[in-house]
Simulated scan of single mutants.
Amino acid sequence: MEMIADILLVAGALGAGFYCYVLARRLSRFNDLENGVGGAVAVLSMQVDDLTKTLQAARASAGASNESLVNLIDRAESVAKRLELMVASMHDIPETPAAPPPPEPDSPLGPVFRRHEDMGASQ
């Protein structure tokens, strides 16, 4: 009886050893940096780092653009106030009639018509 128990114990130990060997091979293929999930995790980690750097640069650029826009808006509001004051002050100015066109110089002979010799020769 003890011999049967010993045989079963050795068989169980051999089975467990074989199972551990198979799991070790699967795990090494799983963690392979070129083909397995380990490579995918490494690539994703690098992409996350790149995206983090890009996001920080975009935040800095957006902050600078925001400051620039705030300054431009302030300037535009001050110019708008000045324009409103100018338009309001234009209502106080009396309207003046438009100046008449300057008189044409009168010639003592009236209008003068001249014929060019080139035009007569081409006909």
Rank of each mutant, 00 (worst) to 15 (best):
R75Q: 14
L27R: 11
L8N: 04
V41E: 04
A13N: 10
V70I: 11
L85W: 09
M86L: 15
A5K: 12
R59C: 09
E67F: 00
C20A: 15
A64W: 01
G110I: 03
P103A: 07
S89M: 03
Y19I: 09
E117F: 02
A76F: 06
S122R: 02
E84S: 15
G110F: 03
G63W: 00
A99N: 15
S68L: 11
L83K: 08
A60V: 03
Q56L: 14
N66H: 06
E104N: 02
F30W: 07
T52Y: 04
A76D: 07
L44N: 12
Q123T: 00
A99G: 10
A24M: 08
C20L: 12
G63K: 02
A62C: 01
A5R: 09
L69M: 10
E84W: 06
I93S: 07
K53I: 07
A62R: 05
D106V: 09
A57V: 06
G12A: 15
G17V: 11
V41L: 09
R25C: 12
G17C: 10
V70K: 14
A5G: 09
P97M: 04
A60W: 00
G120H: 00
A76W: 04
D106P: 00
E34Y: 00
A62Q: 03
V43H: 01
D106Y: 03
D106G: 04
A62V: 04
A16D: 05
N66T: 04
G36L: 00
R59P: 01
M1V: 11
L9G: 10
I73S: 07
F18K: 13
D92H: 10
L109G: 03
L8I: 10
D92Y: 08
L44D: 07
P105L: 05
V87W: 05
S78C: 06
L8T: 06
V22T: 13
S68K: 09
E2T: 08
S78P: 00
P105A: 04
S122A: 05
I93W: 01
G39A: 02
A42V: 02
L51A: 12
E2Y: 03
M3W: 09
V22R: 14
L55K: 04
Y21I: 08
H116C: 03
S107H: 12
P111E: 02
A99R: 15
D32T: 01
T52R: 15
A11S: 13
D92Q: 14
M3Y: 08
E77Y: 13
D6A: 10
E77N: 15
P111K: 06
A99E: 12
M46G: 12
A11F: 04
D50C: 07
S107L: 10
R59K: 14
I93Y: 06
D50M: 06
R115H: 03
P108C: 00
M3L: 13
S89R: 05
P100W: 00
V79I: 10
M86V: 11
E67W: 01
A58D: 13
Q123A: 05
M86A: 13
G12K: 14
V112A: 08
L51W: 12
I4T: 06
L85P: 01
T54G: 11
M46Y: 01
L55E: 14
A13T: 14
H116E: 06
A58E: 12
M86R: 12
